[in-house]
Simulated scan of single mutants.
Amino acid sequence: MNISNDPTSPPNEYDDNYPDYEPCSFSDSNSVNFVVGPYIHSIICILGLVGNSLVILTFALYKRTKSMTDVYLLNVAIADLLFVLALPFIVYNEMYSWPMGQVACKLLRGSYSVNLYSGMLMLACISTDRYIAIVQARRSFRLRSVSSSHIICFLIWIFALLVSVPTFHFYHWYEPSHHEITWFNSTEEEETTDPQYVCEWKFDDSNTASIVKVAVPSTQLAIGFFLPLLIMIFCYTSVIITLQKAKSYKRHKAIRVVMVVMLVFIVCHLPYNLALLYETVSYFELRDCHAESSLKTAMSVLQTVAYLHCCLNPLLYAFIGVNFRNHFRRIFQNLCCLGQRYLAPRHSSRVTSDICMSTVRRSVDRSSRTSTSFLT
């Protein structure tokens, strides 16, 4: 428990006997958030929206889910897409007041939690599927089926929804009453008389607040990071050992891909989750304004690095495979054909269309003969 009053996180409505400390300004943290919020997060939203939309579009129009990895890739793309769609509203809520009401507040925060858990657990499932396909190759045909992957994905979404129930329940839309909130769009000289509503935690008593504010991040750390991390380390380490024993000219490329996947996951998520672990463990400790401001600045920057992973997932898990790249290329070929069909002169449109369709067919024939694994 820190001794400062965070202007972006309103105080708990239940605490009437809290001592009156002078509020911290958090000028350094606010300056970082002002840059990270509207600019860097906008880039993440655009890249994540384009990349994951292309993955979903490719599965919908050109590539059918023929393996467990395909099913998991599709669900990861859906989770990441829903996350980047919610991210602008989360950033707006952290920088300004929340004008959209109670239902939108709960849906926003709850969907963020659901997509976080589901996306991370799907990545663990992909590593498990690669482990079974490569390390347990003799038993892979019996253990891997598309129907079972659909069941697993359904159970993961249900599980993510269940562990997100506290977020749905305890986030509320309300007007803080104990002190004024300093928003990024206001200056020190301004005095806003209009009601400023927030979408934040709200509790009925201090005991509930203490339990939830420790239990929720602890669950996020355990299920949303450390469990997938341990599964990925075990599975991909076993895959690398098995590939090193294989006498194939593709093994070096496959090993590099696996190591890049693990490295990117660790670099993106480990720093933020370690900072979150420190914040959770030291929740009941008193911190001065400088320490609190430094922690908030670090959390803001490291959280943005973690958000980058939703942009990198399409590159790491989808477009790195030859088969997926061929389908992706086919999308642009069809778009070019449509453009040439409507822009070319009428007498040459038929010839142009025939050439385009011939090119597309050759691309499809090549892609149908390639592997679906993201390791090739």
Rank of each mutant, 00 (worst) to 15 (best):
F234H: 07
F225S: 08
L338R: 13
E279I: 10
G48I: 10
W98F: 06
S164P: 11
N334S: 15
L277N: 13
T193H: 03
F159V: 13
K63Y: 04
D70A: 10
T167E: 01
V55E: 15
A133M: 07
M1R: 10
P345N: 00
L338Q: 06
I240F: 14
L108S: 04
F265R: 08
F265G: 10
E191T: 00
W183Q: 04
S368P: 09
D204H: 07
I223Y: 12
S111Y: 11
D204F: 08
Q220K: 04
D28G: 15
T297L: 01
H252E: 12
P7S: 01
R325P: 07
C24W: 04
S42Q: 11
H179G: 10
S25G: 03
C337I: 12
L243M: 02
S140T: 01
L277V: 00
S248H: 05
T242W: 07
G119T: 02
I132L: 11
V216A: 15
N93C: 01
P314K: 00
L54T: 09
V264G: 02
V135P: 09
C153T: 05
S358Y: 01
T280F: 09
K245Y: 09
K253R: 13
M95D: 05
P345E: 02
I266D: 01
A60E: 08
S148D: 12
T208N: 06
L143K: 07
R138S: 13
D205I: 00
K296L: 09
D80T: 10
N17A: 08
K106W: 00
Y283L: 02
L82P: 06
P228N: 08
V281G: 07
T69W: 05
T304S: 13
M259N: 04
S149A: 01
V239K: 14
L143R: 12
H179C: 03
N185T: 00
I240Y: 15
R139P: 11
F83L: 10
E94N: 13
Y171S: 14
C199V: 06
M122A: 14
H290Q: 11
T372Y: 04
N313P: 07
H150A: 03
S186K: 02
V212G: 15
N52S: 14
I156F: 06
K66V: 02
S164I: 03
L335T: 14
N334Y: 10
R130Y: 11
L221W: 00
S67E: 07
L335Y: 07
